[in-house]
């Protein structure tokens, strides 16, 4: 596996993405779901890096930095929502009780 061949990296990215998606679908804990989305984002990052390396372009790394920023913002917002829900008297992290918000 030489440096210019992205296949290995892409396979790892697909595996990572699938694990992340699986995590979102099967975990009921909101924190774990957030983490799973991070995993999916990282999979996307890996794919960009591999592609950038393949064509020797800086775009891949630019996208990586942008996605990391997005991921940070997303987890900040996600954690803030969870904390707010906790502060509002919701003493659980179970995502399936989200349809009982009574809004």
């Amino acid at each position: 596996m030489n440096a210019a061949d992205p296949n290995g990296a892409l396979i790892v990215a697909v595996i990572l993405f699938s694990l992340g998606a699986l995590g979102v679908l099967v975990r009921r804990n909101l924190l774990f779901m957030l983490m799973s989305t991070e995993v999916m984002l990282n999979a996307a990052c890996l794919a960009f890096i591999a592609a950038g390396n393949r064509w020797h372009l800086a775009d891949g790394q630019v996208m990586f930095i942008m996605i990391v920023a997005f991921a940070a913002a997303e987890s900040a917002v996600g954690l803030a929502i969870i904390l707010r829900m906790h502060a509002a008297g919701r003493a659980t992290l179970d995502a399936d009780t989200g349809n009982r918000l009574g809004g």
Partner: peptide, 13 residues
Amino acid sequence: QSGQVRRYAGWIA
């Protein structure tokens, strides 16, 4: 439209 986040995610997938 069940209000279940995981189900929405499943449909998106």
